[in-house]
């Protein structure tokens, strides 16, 4: 069974893994990036209200490191133009696909559905994430 599931196209597999019965809350980078982020600040209520909610959000897929292979994790960013620079931490969400699932980076806009975690996460004193999504569905 697992072998058969692994043979499915990754986008279809992700669709099958979408949480049944949940009604994702639609949000956007207009909300997540609606403030000038500085480290240690109190995040706006409309953002913290989304913590641990299943959301659907659109954006552009970007690799965390350059390459061409399918990915299990990716950045969802608010702006598709690489020329416009490096997104701030509140202008991107770190998305992780289910274990063993990988997919190609898609060009253009995608809709990601999954559980959103809001809050500063630090490693060695550096804030490394503000928004994380356990992505169940990428369309």
């Amino acid at each position: 069974m697992l072998a058969a599931v692994r043979a499915l196209p990754s986008t279809l597999l992700i669709g099958l893994l979408a949480l049944p019965g949940t009604d994702p809350e639609k949000t956007s980078f207009s909300v997540l990036a609606s403030f000038d982020y500085t480290e240690g600040m109190t995040l706006p209520k409309e953002v913290t209200n989304l913590d641990e909610k299943v959301v659907v959000i659109s954006g552009f897929m970007r690799r965390e490191v350059p390459g061409s292979n399918p990915v299990n994790t990716f950045l969802l960013v608010s702006d598709g133009c690489g020329c416009s620079g490096m997104p701030k931490l509140n202008e991107l969400a770190f998305c992780t696909l289910p274990d063993d699932v990988t997919m190609d980076i898609k060009p253009g806009i995608v809709n990601v559905t999954g559980k959103l975690y809001v809050g500063e996460e630090k490693e060695d004193g550096v804030v490394v994430m503000l928004y994380q999504i356990d992505a169940d569905d990428v369309k």
């Binding site: 956007s28 207009s30 990036a33 609606s34 403030f35 000038d36 659109s58 598709g80 806009i109």
Partner: peptide, 28 residues
Amino acid sequence: SPWGQSRAREASLALKDWLAADYPIHDG
């Protein structure tokens, strides 16, 4: 590709910063 939304977000942030307390939509 929603380039209009990107413009809107940038405009909104600049106006929010400039209007400060006069920005008509408050946090929460």
